[in-house]
Amino acid sequence: MQKTCTLSVLKVYLLNAFLAGGAIVMLAPFVWMLSLSLKPENEIYTPFIKLLPEVWDFENYREAVNYGETGKFVFNGIVVTGSILLLQYLTIIPGAYVLARKRFRLEKLCFALVLAALMIPQHIAAIPLFMLMGRLSLLNTYTALILPFMTSAFGLFLLRQSFKALPQDLIDAARIDGASEAYALFAILVPQIFPALAAFSVFSIVSHWNDFFWPLLVVSDMELATPPLGVSIFASDEGGNDVGPMMASATLIVLPLMLVFLAARKRFVQGMTMTGLK
């Protein structure tokens, strides 16, 4: 009895040590970013690794906000990711509902197309999309940043699975009680799939907030730059890297994401386990 106890305790310790190791590896760049952002310039390039700065210096942040205009990039990021998310909700919720519940001709083909779209990397479609934006004279606009992402195959797939798991009686009951189908969908069904929706939202926000590739293609005007594009100012300006302000800027940009994830963490994990997606 005693032995099995110590063994299982040992197992827990080992497991935790393993997970802690993984966490450290994942967190190291962030910690380093935070550390560098707080150091004055003369401390950044030293032969020793020091986590804590000798002199705490918030000058980098001041520079990031004033010179780098991080506030503007964050604003652009919020406008772009927010609009993308809203448009995605408006397209994938009805779309996924129809795919889950309605029987129509070419239904199978439609779903197959969604699955196929899931497998195409964004970069393959980038050049035709760029040319399309060019033809429509939309380059260097918010529209160019938002329009290509107004729907999401992944979202359609995820929500379809969630809608499929809901009982048909629920929507029938709402319709009998006098609700239109659209009202029943948004007022009765959507609250039931909240975990999946939260999981999808985190995915969408993170991927579009962090997207560097597409904004780099369609936006050259720094007034419209999204956060990652904004950070790159410090990487190229004045011939050299301005590491301190760049790290400060990066820290500020990651912050909203962390807050979003922490807020939705519980729902996010629920949503992932619910759909059997890992």
């Binding site: 009686d169 029938d172 709402a174 319709r175 609700a179």
Partner: peptide, 27 residues
């Protein structure tokens, strides 16, 4: 169905899980 002025009780009850009993009845 919403225009037929009827009420129905389902085998599965089909209550709205996110609404309170009072809100279910008021729906």
């Amino acid at each position: 169905a919403s225009q037929r002025d009827i009420a129905m009780v389902f085998q599965s009850y089909a209550l709205y899980p996110h609404k309170s009993v009072g809100e279910n009845i008021a729906f």
